[in-house]
Design a protein around this nucleic acid. Structure first.
Lengths: 353, 353
DNA sequence: TTGAAAGCGCTAACAC
DNA sequence: GTGTTAGCGCTTTCAA
């Protein structure tokens, strides 16, 4: 490997001068600058990241700590974070907790095991001298990942942080559900079943309030019997449909595309035609949704935008670090990103009864 | 940040001793060892990766250079590579070329632009002092990513390398297609249309030979008119069906699930019932495939296994580096991983004519 | 069994 | 403008 010193010797100058040229620090005569650049090109010299990092204690690197990169929401967010960080000439490195791989659906509550996986990674990122970290959650909840003694700038992505120092970027579940239900009501539905995820889940809770708000604003009574709590799985969508259909709903709002798939399963089994006998709306706009028959009306997650904003936040924090003109905040800042409806074929005018 | 020296002082020993303890080098009295470990625990000391890397010129890090992490094949492979490397206590860092994001489907042939993206990353990984690199392709082809002067151990994942120094791990396209077509023939089909990807694509070529071999072994004539070249898109699957159906096929083999989705589109539009009037087989076992109606019979990509083998190969190379008992090879080693059929509802007994 | 000293490749501070 | 020196945190002789 060719080093700074090698370059310096080849040019007959000191290491400092070469360093200066590379980093555009002190002024250097155009002549030597040219010469140095030429040698760098020729030798293919690359500054050693380790040495530089050791010296300046800044690595222009931000770390993503992902709960699970195989979660369908993760790759687009990561891709977007990378694209936006690289624009500012930051590297990004990804750590993968593989929470799902390890414990399937039982992430929460397992405080101890969770930290046995997270803490070493937290150690790693400080050992790696990264400048900031983005914690990328697999699903929304309040996450206390970082202890109070964690010194690095951080942002919480796709979930809520529990610390005022750490801002969060999340999707606007309430509004998105509200809009979908508004749409269904406008299509003439007034008895709409809600097939949710787990009861204690934040996505579920917020989408349910959006549902309720839309109902309320349209003078429709909220009937708790019309909400079913599943677990996001296709099978639980099936069960939801089974539980709700007998109650005479004209439409079902499955708050994930997977669950809506289960709803379709039930309806097919019972010869109920989607879009004719019953309307169905999903959530997520996963790739599967456009292959449903009829194609599923759903709402698209702004994954790229979430990544972009997370990158923006962390980068701002880093710039700010010197200026430190941060106002005192008590509540963690929460940025809610709106989703967009994608209207396809599964929600149709309610049959006049 | 607490350093080695801090720990040493707290224990009243030298830095050397602490280093020895951490790395299990020279023997240390059980007593001091205990004391040192205790202080490390208490202080939460973590060795500085930069400093260590600078010193030993090994980072116990392997780099994945991914053409596109948003490609559906990438995340499971990456996840598997990470899991297997971490077992051996190697870190892995991911670089994302974002080829698709940049140029959509026109990756190939753009030698110059391609290298304008790749080469800086190649520079980065050497600057990062990684011990080895895994190049993760988005789709199979012969890739000349590394120049002859690239010194790091490397393996090509999900594509073919052009250098004898770099082994490849790929799926066994030929065999997988062969098996699927065998199955279709056993179900009574003897006029099977082949809806391929691009003509020059390796996946396409090899799956086509598998198709041809199955036909041959069953004494069936290969009719070139029954093969249609698409571009992997849903729309091209539609076009494929449109072109092939009029020729009286009883089954269609769409060599991606996406294209098979397009085949379904065409059939639905023309009131041809899948699994009754016509059989359809896909390839990939993407999540979409189980939501097709009827559910798609397809073949599952052994993504985890591909990741595992890639990790194994690179790790072996690293172990080997000292022993250097590598035999001279002319041809790059190619490991073909078999896929597994997943039989669902879309291929049924051919109607007796 | 332990420690002192040198040095990995780089940059910051200061001198010239 | 450019060079000298010191030191970032760690490991590695080599000596004690």
């Amino acid at each position: 490997m060719v080093t700074l010193k090698d370059v310096a010797e080849k040019c007959g100058v000191s290491a400092t001068t070469v360093s200066n040229v590379i980093n555009g620090k002190a002024k250097t005569s155009e002549q030597t600058r040219k010469r140095i650049m030429k040698v760098i090109k020729e030798t293919g010299y690359k500054p050693n990241v380790m040495a530089k990092g050791l010296r300046v204690k800044k690595s222009r690197t931000i770390a993503i700590i992902a709960e699970d990169i195989a979660q369908f929401t993760s790759p687009p967010i990561i891709e977007s974070i990378m694209a936006n960080c690289e624009k500012e000439d930051y590297r990004v490195i990804v750590h993968n907790l593989r929470l799902y791989d390890r414990w399937k659906d039982t992430w929460y509550g397992q405080e101890e095991e969770y930290h046995s996986v997270l803490d070493p990674v937290l150690g790693d990122v400080v050992a790696e001298q990264v400048d900031g970290v983005i914690y990328l959650a697999g699903h929304a909840r309040i996450i206390k990942a970082f202890g109070d003694d964690f010194m690095l700038p951080a942002v919480m992505c796709y979930a809520y942080s529990n610390s005022p120092k750490i801002p969060s970027v999340v999707i606007d579940d309430e509004k998105s559900a509200y809009e979908m239900v508004q749409y269904m009501i406008r299509m003439g539905h007034n008895s709409i079943g809600f097939v949710g995820g787990r009861r204690e889940n934040i996505h579920t809770a917020q989408r349910l309030s959006g549902y309720q708000r839309a109902m309320f604003e349209n003078g429709l009574l909220f009937d708790p019997k019309l909400v079913y709590y599943g677990d996001w799985s296709r099978e639980s969508g099936y069960q939801g449909a089974k539980a709700l259909i007998p109650q005479g709903v004209t439409a079902l709002f499955g708050i994930s595309d997977q669950m809506s798939g289960g709803i379709y399963d039930y309806l097919e089994e019972n010869n109920i035609i989607v879009g004719k006998d019953l309307s169905v709306a999903g959530f997520d706009n996963e790739s599967i949704s456009s292959f449903f028959r009829p194609q599923l009306t759903t709402t698209e997650l702004p994954l790229g935008e979430i990544g972009r904003l997370s990158a923006k936040l962390i980068l701002e924090k880093l710039e700010d670090a010197e200026g430190e003109n941060r106002p005192e905040v008590q509540e963690p800042e929460v940025i809610k990103v709106p989703c967009t409806m994608v209207i396809r074929k599964s929600v149709t005018e309610a049959n006049i009864k």
